[in-house]
Write a protein that binds this DNA or RNA. Structure first.
Lengths: 408, 408
DNA sequence: TGCGTTAGTAAGGAAGGTCTACTAACAAAC
DNA sequence: GTTTGTTAGTAGACCTTCCTTACTAACGCA
């Protein structure tokens, strides 16, 4: 590809899309993606993370294979690996078993046994659940504390204690602490608002980092769960929405390889979209339930776990199926525009499967398919999440892996 | 912030989120955002684009100010500027007028007059519209050709001729050609499918690049328009959806500073979401219109320009207002879940304002507000797009600026 | 006239990655 | 048993990129 007259530059290359803060354009138009300067040392950090990532996902590998996978030279890979070995993150793992031509390869592998992660899930109103986890996502130690109505600073103190206990309970150095919190959490780990805990503008990540002496990463709990499902749940496609059905309803969305945050960091708030229309009411219908948000007809008023349990309570299986299917249809109506707009490949339901994984799921899928164009709907998969209760913990661990090691 | 025992690394820094193709994880979990190696030269290209971007958006600036804005040193900026001057992209613009202490600053500015861009909009079924544009988005020469039913290779040939003519009509060297095409367009500029043109898997960007000898960038027309509105339309917020109402209905979405592509690159296909429910029908309602996609009740059957014109034809103003408001409500019902899920800040309507910018828009906004939680809906702005017919051309120009110069 | 301030450049150095060339260690063919 | 070809890993020279430090030029102000 040769260009004309004056030697015009090509596209900015791999580093062209980096950064997240900085220079705001004033004069002419606006900046699509704010940029930050990149130094050679940043490139180095990037390449180091690349090697580590390869090692993490593919297990022990020879330096030569790493070079082929990363497209760096063997020399550079050796250098990076040496650095990682000095840091204790990587170690030699003997020679490759298979007999091949040439000098036998010395495998190097990530020291997944030598470090641990602390993960905490604050989604439950009644208790804080935490765990010490291995780098590969296994839960090693569980611990939870009853909240007993604590809010504000008291709840913070309780959380800090739980985190400290878990860090102490770890049998290996802790890389970091990951926390999934309800409410709106910004990119810096500040809990902008979490009404249930009475937290407003709490710089959770920063405060706990200084208090624990260990890096702390915080994200919204639905996003955390989505991250867990995306990373460990065997999601196949590129566009993924994880719908969390619990006390309320929330969602985390991964599109184009990244977690959506949204303007004001409140992406995924699907619980308070209206689904029950006044005009839909038929004579004899139950009165529309008033939602916690003050309005009525919200998705949460029919799809949350309490609402579902109340709706099917004491009903015969057939009747309960009808009720669940009706809720599924409402869900489908809400999902259809989202699935279309984002061209999603998968929607996962996370919550009690005895309620969700039957007529409700089937009706929701059928409704989405009915209401979207075939090329969108037919390729959609709508199924149960695979990770259950520990999705949030896994996701919190991913937060740390990604934030501290650059491994995703 | 000191970390414990072994010297653990910090987050990967500015370059941590780069790249788009490469290594797929196999073993443990999956990669959130595939990474590519970064070399010093890529860092250089990035920093060069950073300087250029600053110059583009802020107009003529001194090297010292550029250094402050980019956080690079004066030395580095001088070096980069020298390179840009050699390439002819930047030139000295005399000294700064204001009298200040110290040595007077020599301003350097981008040579926005010395290069041009060719932009082409294929959205219209009947004709291909193109223009030679300045780097700041002004249309200098317009040219359009009637399609006259041509499809497939014939339509391609027509497009190539138009592009070549426009390149020839430019009075300055052409940086690149930007094209907004209907249908699904992937990241490489391949038109995956565009039924109206009978294009399937046409590598438009690549073919035209070789044919014209000038870099060609192609994107979906709705995305292109969204890009234009985002860059030149004075959009304020971070989450933006531009709804294009024309022969059909489509949308382009900018969230978290990037244009959404979606799994299969079909994000934004809102035209074929069902909005007219069978059970909504009242006695006397008109028969639901069968859509081009074969189903019925699609948004497109009520919101497209032909549908709207047909609906208000011959009606008294009051009656037509009622009809338009009714369509607006349907639009609001579709938008509410999308606005909530993505936490959008703005929705822009692009199309004939005599139809859209009245009861329709007002009803849509009111409906979205009714059906979303206050924190989402109250901050939403739903207004007319400002760029009109030329939005697609502007967006195509942005495609080129971004692709060739790294300027957005 | 002298002093402090600001703009821009020159020279040297540190860090990163590549290329080329080398050694080590093996399988398979002779 | 030796030779040949292949693969793994390392050493050294080189290029690029940016930084730091030190300098000159040009101004306002006292």
């Amino acid at each position: 590809m040769t260009t004309s007259t004056p030697q015009l530059p090509f596209a900015p290359g791999p580093a062209g899309q980096a950064g997240h803060t900085g220079t705001a354009g004033r004069g002419l138009g606006r900046v699509l993606r704010p940029m930050v300067k990149v130094l050679p040392e940043h490139a180095r950090a990037h390449n180091r993370a690349l090697v580590l990532q390869q090692l993490f996902h593919s297990g022990p590998t020879s330096r030569a294979d790493l070079a082929r996978a990363t497209e760096l030279t063997r020399v550079t890979v050796s250098d990076l690996v040496a650095e990682l070995i000095v840091e204790g993150l990587v170690a030699e793992r003997g020679v490759r078993a298979e007999a091949r031509v040439g000098k036998p390869a010395k495998l190097v592998g990530m020291c997944t046994e030598d470090f641990q992660i602390v993960a905490i899930d604050l989604a439950d109103d009644a208790s804080f659940r935490g765990a010490v986890m291995s780098l590969v996502g296994e839960v090693l130690v569980r611990r939870s504390v009853a909240v007993e109505g604590r809010t504000g600073a008291d709840a913070l103190e309780l959380l800090a204690q739980l985190a400290a206990e878990l860090v102490a309970a770890a049998t290996r150095p802790v890389i970091g602490v990951g926390i999934g919190s309800p409410g709106v959490v910004d990119r810096e780990g500040v809990v902008v608002e979490a009404p249930n805990r009475d937290w407003y503008g709490v710089p959770l990540a920063h405060d706990l980092t200084t208090r624990l002496g260990t890096p702390v990463h915080v994200a919204n709990d639905a996003n955390t769960r989505a991250l867990g499902e995306y990373t460990y749940g065997g999601a196949s496609g590129e566009g993924l929405l994880v719908l969390i059905v619990g006390q309320g309803v929330g969602a985390g969305i991964v599109v184009d390889g990244m977690l959506l945050k949204g303007h004001r960091d409140a992406a995924g708030e699907l619980g308070h979209v209206t689904v029950v229309d006044a005009r839909d009411e038929r004579p004899g219908d139950p009165e529309p339930v008033v939602c916690a948000c003050g309005r009525s007809g919200c998705l949460e008023t029919v799809l949350s776990v309490p609402a579902l349990r109340r709706a099917v309570e004491g009903l015969a299986p057939e009747d309960s199926d009808v009720v669940l299917a009706s809720v599924g249809r409402k869900l489908g109506i809400v999902l259809a525009p989202v699935v279309s707009a984002l061209n999603l490949a998968e929607v996962l339901l996370s919550g009690p499967s005895e309620l969700l994984d039957g007529p409700l799921r089937e009706a929701a899928l059928a409704t989405v398919r009915e209401r979207t164009m075939p090329v969108v709907g037919d390729q959609l998969s709508l199924r149960m999440a695979t990770l259950g209760e520990d999705a949030a913990l896994s996701g919190a661990a991913v937060l740390v892996l990604s934030g501290q090691l650059g491994v995703t």
